[in-house]
């Protein structure tokens, strides 16, 4: 009787022995991530939830009507001004990420392949501009590109132009130039890291198998560093779509982007639901664009082979 009871109890106790262990591991894991998790919930998930909720409401002057409506989305998608602003934002962010990555790749390549013992010094030098505030860096571009700015006086001094050009500042290209500079380090670092991971004997093997420097770069180094390129593009592209400070300071009338329109809705326009709807649409579009860029680059990487 006791023997039977023991026999039937033992597998259960064996299982019972395991479960608290697993539970405690799970509990430990949760405890470890809980500060971050809490932070993410309070400061990321909650605001997004609020924004999404607001986007389904409507507002008349100062009173918010909390009945469910898709009106805000209808307005946001049909009013040409918002569509144009969103398209311009996407276009600017694409240009910025293209130029940033194109300029960052050679720098990262140089540091990784020819940096020698001074790699960390080079990386350190790259971060120096980031010791000053983002605002100051944007303002300094105003000084460079302005009517009486460094570039204009330099060009006039060289006799290339007769009077200061107004084409430099307060337009889309000023926004692109400023953002490209502002995000450079964020593109250089991930590309550098993925180039560091490229096994140098693979490059030697490519040369051994008949590839010159350009072909071995295109067939081995570039495809193997694509993960870094992709993350650089995403790191630069996603925040620039919604950038607000740079267009405001150097963009002028011509350089207004979607973030400015969203700001207007939340402040002067006093239409929080419309601002929220614009935000949600921007988020969705950015997500879709980021995903398609990743897919396109991966596909292109496969094509190179």
């Amino acid at each position: 009787m006791t023997a039977v009871a023991e026999a039937s109890a033992s597998p259960r106790s064996g299982r019972g022995h395991r479960r608290p262990l697993l539970q405690s591991e799970r509990a430990q894991g949760l405890a470890l991530i809980s500060p971050t998790l809490l932070y993410a919930l309070v400061l990321l998930v909650a605001p997004i939830a609020v924004v999404i909720t607001y986007s389904f409401w409507s507002q008349d002057y100062l009173t918010v009507d909390r009945t469910f409506t898709l009106d805000q989305y209808r307005i946001a998608l049909t009013e040409p001004i918002y569509r144009d602003l969103l398209l311009r934002s996407l276009w600017v962010s694409l240009l910025v990420s293209f130029f940033t990555v194109s300029l960052a790749y050679p720098i990262a390549y140089y540091i990784s392949f020819h940096g020698g013992r001074h790699k960390s010094l080079w990386l350190f030098l790259i971060t120096i501009p980031f010791w000053t505030s983002y605002l100051l860096r944007v303002m300094s571009w105003k000084v460079i590109l302005g009517y009486n700015g460094v570039l204009n006086s330099g060009l006039m001094g060289l006799g290339i132009i007769d009077e200061p050009s107004t084409a430099l500042l307060y337009n889309t290209s000023a926004v692109v130039i400023t953002l490209t500079h502002a995000w450079a380090a964020f593109a250089i670092l991930p590309i550098f890291v993925s180039l560091e991971k490229v096994d140098r004997t693979l490059v030697e093997a490519a040369k051994d198998l008949g590839d010159g420097p350009i072909r071995s770069f295109l067939r081995v180094t570039l495809p193997l560093s694509l993960p870094g390129v992709i993350s650089a593009i995403l790191i630069v592209m996603i925040p620039t779509v919604g950038d607000y400070v740079t267009p405001k300071l150097v963009g002028g009338k011509d350089g207004v982007m979607i973030a400015t329109a969203i700001e207007t809705q939340f402040k002067r326009g006093a239409n929080w639901p419309l601002g929220a709807a614009l935000s949600v649409i921007t988020m969705i579009v950015v997500t879709l664009m980021a995903a398609s860029i990743v897919l396109i680059i991966r596909q292109a990487g496969r094509r190179i082979r």
Binding site: D199, T201, L202, E204, K207, D208, G210, V220, P223
Partner: peptide, 21 residues
């Protein structure tokens, strides 16, 4: 004469197999 134009080919110690191919 660079490696890619020599009549030699190498089997590397790590084999250097291209991981993306």
């Amino acid at each position: 004469i660079p490696a890619n134009r020599r009549p030699t080919n190498m089997v590397f110690q790590s084999y250097a197999i291209f991981p993306h191919l």
